[in-house]
Every structure is written in structure tokens, then in C-alpha cells.
Simulated scan of single mutants.
Amino acid sequence: MTGRTLRLLSLLQTRREWSGSELADRLGVTVRTVRRDVDRLRDLGYPVDSVRGHAGGYRLAAGTDLPPLLLDDEEAVAIAVALRTAAGGLTGIEETALRALAKLEQVLPRRLRTRVAALQASVAGIAWEDRGPRADPVLLGALAVACRDHELLTFDYTTRGGAAAARRVEPRHLVASGALWYLLAHDTDKDDWRIFRLDRITGLTPTGHRVPARPVPGDDPAAFVAARLSAAPTRHRALATVRAPVDQVRAGTRNLGTRIRPIDESTCLVDASDDSLTRIAQTLAGLPADYTLDADPDVLSHLRTSAHHTLHATG
């Protein structure tokens, strides 16, 4: 298989459908050359379907057998299960794992998709701590495909206050923050970017309508989501002035991002505000240096009670 044919295969795996002219432009060849390369992929066993229409096109379909030179049955099942596990628990690679899983499941034969689903239903992990609300893996997968294909979605969304409303959005990225997942999307009705927690999304419905990819402000989805989350109002306020340089505090904490701001070379401000008193206590306990605290009375009361229990337990 030539490098150009591999590039063609990679393009076919990233979108549901390509026109012949689009593939020719991406590969820097003629439409006739694209047709020859598609025939070569078919000869190797890759299920490439032709799409009828004014411009014509191609799509990679699910096959009756795995394409040769790729994976055997056991390897395909093992990789699919590993990708699902990574998407649910390894910070930093979740969206990449979902994109890879979407590509793999697109060409898995039905018999292997059934085995993967059975394994997922049969295998359980032990939860050693309360991780809070978790996103539905089926929802994660559907959103990953919609982000990849730039397909408009509709769904019902429940806000933190309990109000529910229908939304119509252009999905762009999935972002994980600790145990929570967020969808970064452009809300077509409000004509603005919005962040949606996946555990509050119900009734997801693909529209079948695709739109050009809208650029994310700042070109960094994770940083954009972190900044929005930091600016969002929280139930409990807690601001810690830490006697350590900002780089030292960032190195010793997780998932705080833009909530750590330098005051001077030896001091920084950590915004530990949260809807959960327990999470505030955990954040403060993880600070790598002494600090002073400006917090709401309920936060101070919770911290004093926790400290009393700890002192009593240690004698």
C-alpha cells in the first residue's frame, strides 16, 4: 500500500462521506487517480462505497470482514474495549480515544460489535471514591461522532437551577475536567458559544444537517472551557492567598487551570470556590504551601468541623 493510499484511507476514516473532488484536492491528484486508489483499497478488502449524486463521492462502510493488513478479530475487540476504558478514565486522552473508537467501530463487522458490547456490559470496575455524576458512554460516542462530522444537534438541557429547555447547537469539542465531561458548542438560537455538562443532556437527536466547522475562540477548546468555568458563579466562595510562586502551586495541584493567578513572584491567589463544600476542602488540602483564606461562613464552618474530626481521630 502506497503512502498516498494510506492517506486516502485515513481521510475516509475521519468523515462519513467525501466527494471525489474533495479527496483529489486533499491528496493533490486528479479525480481519476482517486478512483484508481479507491479500487486499490477495495482490492485490499476495505469496504469503500460509492455515493451517487451530482458530484459523486465515497464513504467507508462497515464490512463483513475486517480489512486485511489491519487487525484480526481478537486485536480489534481488545483495542475497542481499551479505547472505551481510556475514554472513561484516563485524563488527557479521552477525546482522542473517542475519535479513534469512532473510526474503529465504523468498520467493525456486526459480530465484533456485538462482542464489544457484551464485554462492556459484563465487565465492571470498582469505584474507590465518589466521582460524582458520570457521562453516559453512548452519549459520549454520539457526541464525538457529531463533533467529527460537524452535524447540528438538538437536545434538552437542564441547568444547575433545574430549568430545562430545548437547545440546537453546532458541536465542536468534548472536554474532560476531572470526573465531569463538557460539550463545547455554538448555540444557534443564542448565537453564542455555550458549555454543556453531559450529565445534564437528554433527548439527543442528530439532525442530519452538517455545517462548516466554526473556529473556537482562541483556538484552544480546553483553555476556553476552563476560562468559562472559572468565571461561572458558584454556590460557595473560597479564595486562598498562597505563600508560594504560581508555578509551584500549579505543579502541585490538578484541574485548577486559570483559577490560579499570580499576585507577585512569591504569592498567588487560588479560587477554590465550588458548589461542593467537600471539593473545596479537597482543593485546599492539596495546596503545597501555607495560605490565608477568604471564604463564606458555611465554607469556614465545614472546614472547622472537618479539622475537628481529623484532630479527634489522631488523638
Rank of each mutant, 00 (worst) to 15 (best):
G3C: 02
R4T: 11
L6W: 08
L11Q: 15
E17C: 15
S21E: 03
S21M: 08
E22A: 14
E22T: 11
D25H: 02
D25C: 09
L27Q: 01
V31L: 01
V31F: 00
V34E: 00
D37N: 03
D39C: 02
R42F: 00
L44I: 11
D49S: 01
V51H: 05
R52E: 09
G53W: 04
G63L: 01
L69D: 08
E75Y: 04
A80V: 14
L83Q: 12
A86G: 15
G89M: 03
G89L: 04
A102L: 13
A102T: 14
K103S: 05
V107K: 02
P109V: 12
R110T: 12
T114H: 15
V116K: 06
A121R: 14
A124P: 09
A124F: 09
G125D: 05
A127I: 15
A127Q: 15
E129C: 10
R131D: 09
R131E: 10
P133N: 01
P133L: 03
A142M: 01
A144P: 02
Y157I: 06
Y157F: 06
A163M: 14
A163P: 12
A165Y: 06
R168N: 09
W181I: 10
A185E: 07
H186E: 11
T188D: 10
D189N: 13
D189E: 12
D192E: 08
F196N: 03
R200P: 04
R200M: 04
G208W: 12
V211D: 06
P212A: 12
A213N: 12
A222Q: 08
V225R: 00
L229R: 05
S230Y: 09
A231E: 07
R235A: 10
T241R: 13
T241Q: 14
V242D: 02
P245Y: 05
T253F: 02
R254K: 11
N255C: 08
L256C: 03
G257M: 06
T258I: 07
P262L: 06
E265T: 12
S266P: 05
T267R: 10
V270T: 03
S273F: 07
T278K: 09
T278V: 09
Q282I: 11
T283N: 08
T283V: 10
L284H: 01
A285V: 01
D290C: 04
L293T: 03
A295C: 12
P297Q: 05
S301P: 02
R304G: 04
T305R: 15
A307V: 04
L311I: 14
H312V: 11
